[in-house]
């Protein structure tokens, strides 16, 4: 209960004192982006996960793709894509959805090996995803399981942003218009045919840049708080 009252920034300080050295502690060495900062001064990490299902407690991460946004550019030189070795054989339906086969995943590494890379890239940055609760939920569960600590972060959800924008303009939000590919169309962003975690991460990053370029048209400042995802 006290944890909720304190907020992530103080809890981070507390973790830094308590926590043993390791990837999780390294993650907390940089402050969590402060909500009152202008978004232009912040760095983001666009993340997309491919999963076996939607339940963070039960389902598994199959692949992780990420790319940072620095100075409002998606920087591909710092992008990465990892295939995660699942602890169980894959259920059939996720094979169909993602085109990932057991064979290919056999080349993958276990999540324990990959998570440090993700945490390093995310440290000090705002997590960005299209439908962020999934990414937040799964990464948090992974950190809890592997390091015994939660992943405190601030995040932006491009789906949520799109929904808010559309509601403000009294535009319909049904018929799949909030889906990544559909949402992108509205901003003259290209249609990507290939789908993997990295392409989708980059795609959500591009969508975010477009959303904010439209929002900030008058040149006024936009703080993280205004665009931040709020977990209910």
């Amino acid at each position: 209960m006290w944890k909720r009252l304190l907020g992530p920034d103080l809890r981070r300080e507390w973790y830094l004192i308590r926590m043993p050295d390791g990837p999780m502690k390294d993650y907390y060495r940089k402050p969590i982006p402060w909500p009152e900062t202008d978004y232009k001064e912040l760095e983001f990490l666009c993340i997309d996960l491919e999963l076996t299902g939607l339940n963070p407690q039960k389902d598994e991460i199959l692949s992780i793709g990420f790319a940072p946004i620095v100075n409002q550019n998606v920087v591909l030189s710092e992008s990465a894509h990892y295939l995660v070795k699942p602890s169980h054989a894959l259920p059939e339906d996720s094979v169909i959805v993602h085109g990932l086969t057991d064979d290919r995943l056999a080349e993958a590494e276990p999540l324990e090996e990959i998570l440090p890379h993700v945490l390093l890239a995310l440290s000090g940055r705002v997590l960005l995803a299209h439908h962020a609760p999934i990414e937040i939920g799964f990464l948090n569960a992974a950190c809890e399981r592997i390091y015994g600590y939660p992943l405190l972060t601030r995040a932006v959800d491009t789906l949520e942003l799109e929904k808010r924008n559309r509601q403000q303009r009294n535009q319909p939000i049904d018929g799949g218009v909030l889906r990544l590919a559909k949402a992108r169309e509205g901003y003259n962003l290209p249609r990507y045919r290939a789908h993997n975690a990295l392409v989708d991460a980059v795609a959500s990053g591009e969508l975010f840049l477009a959303q904010l370029a439209h929002k900030a048209a008058k040149g006024e400042q936009i703080t993280l708080r205004e665009i931040m995802f709020r977990n209910k």
Partner: peptide, 14 residues
């Protein structure tokens, strides 16, 4: 080559 690229979005008039 793609690894070297940065992606930017520019709104009309930028």
């Amino acid at each position: 080559l793609p690894k070297a690229i940065e992606v930017r979005y520019a709104r009309r008039g930028t």
